[in-house]
Amino acid sequence: MKLTVNGVEHDVQAPQLASLLHVLREELDLTSPKAGCQQGGCGTCTVLVDGEPRRSCLLPLAAVEGAAITTVEGLGAADELSPMQAAFDEHYAAQCGFCTSGFLLAGTALLNGSPGATREEVLEALSGHVCRCTGYVKIVRAVEAALHGEVHPERVEASFEPEETEVLIPGSPA
């Protein structure tokens, strides 16, 4: 059957009940969706199906026929990050990176669907994603920065300054 991923139409051979995650990773070699719990619980396999975040591990191929799939490979490139990617880079919102694809796509869906989301709505949108490192504070901050348009894609290097933590040096004037 035909599957449109990141704007490219593919002729996939996998059986109709194969998971979308399996098809993306094994047949199309798109490895940004990660195979985490594979029970729909961790969020790291999230892709956008017609713009909506969906767990690709739970989606049979037959359910997405004709749909437009977006993975992180379709968001931006290393020298041209999407606003959400740039915000993650700027705010050090990825440590080991395993959960990052899912958070990026959940954040992107929020940015596209409800850019005026409140903090509670941001937490709600991200709450099905597990970060074991665990960088929730900076992930939430990055998503909020992207929603507020406070992103600087031209800044490739993350700032070395802490964002909120106070640094005290004993013996130095306060």
């Binding site: 961790c42 937490l123 991200l126 929730y136 939430v140 933590t165 106070e166 640094v167």
Partner: peptide, 24 residues
């Protein structure tokens, strides 16, 4: 024996955090 049987902290558990770094 599965992901959901092991409770890892999620965003729902995130408390207010106040961090201070001391450099001694």
């Amino acid at each position: 024996d599965e992901f959901g049987a092991y409770l890892a902290p999620s965003l729902e558990d995130l408390p207010d955090l106040d961090n201070v770094i001391i450099e001694s």
